[in-house]
């Protein structure tokens, strides 16, 4: 089937999408946008998080057809021509990145939190990021990064 959508500000028309495919597959396999990660395909790890029409979602749980006519922002769309989003900058500075596989998802989730709660406390950060698994950092530096980004 054909899916038309806007990804990171660019209108895209994708042909040959199979009906059972997820938005995650559409992004990775059809649009070569590999920043959105596939780590569980169950909505348990948050690595595939994107914005769909401004709402944070696990792209592995969105049928590609559900994104028809929609607006998607992936991690690639957060930075602009080498200018990093403050959340991205804060993740680097705080040491919140190790292997980095979970990082795009965490960056999106932190970005979404700060849109709604500009200066969150630890408890708010923990609840907001509870859908993202990280196996490297033990999470403390990620919390540090969100605090750091909140100041900008």
């Amino acid at each position: 089937m054909r899916v038309s959508l806007t990804v990171n500000g660019v209108d895209r028309v994708v042909d040959g999408v199979e009906e059972h495919e997820s938005l995650l597959h559409l992004l990775r396999e059809h649009l070569d946008l590999f920043g959105t990660k596939n780590a569980c395909e169950q909505g348990e790890c948050g690595s595939c998080s994107v914005y769909l029409d401004g709402v944070l979602v696990c792209s592995c749980l969105v049928a590609a057809g559900q994104a028809e006519g929609g607006t998607v922002t992936t991690v690639e769309g957060l930075s602009d021509d080498g200018i990093l989003d403050p959340v991205q900058q804060a993740f680097i500075e705080a040491g919140a990145v190790q292997c980095g596989f979970c990082t795009p998802g965490f960056v999106l989730a932190a970005h979404d939190l700060l849109r709604h709660v500009p200066d969150p406390d630890d408890a708010q950060i923990r609840e907001a990021l509870s859908g993202n698994l990280c196996r490297c950092t033990g999470y403390q530096k990620i919390i540090d990064a969100v605090h750091r980004a909140a100041g900008r």
């Binding site: 590999f34 920043g35 959105t36 990660k37 957060l78 990093l84 991205q88 993740f91 990145v97």
Partner: peptide, 19 residues
Amino acid sequence: TPRIDGEPKVTGAFAYASD
């Protein structure tokens, strides 16, 4: 010292094996 692969990892540009 901030990690040298930090920027590609936060922007999604870093190519993992699955990419």
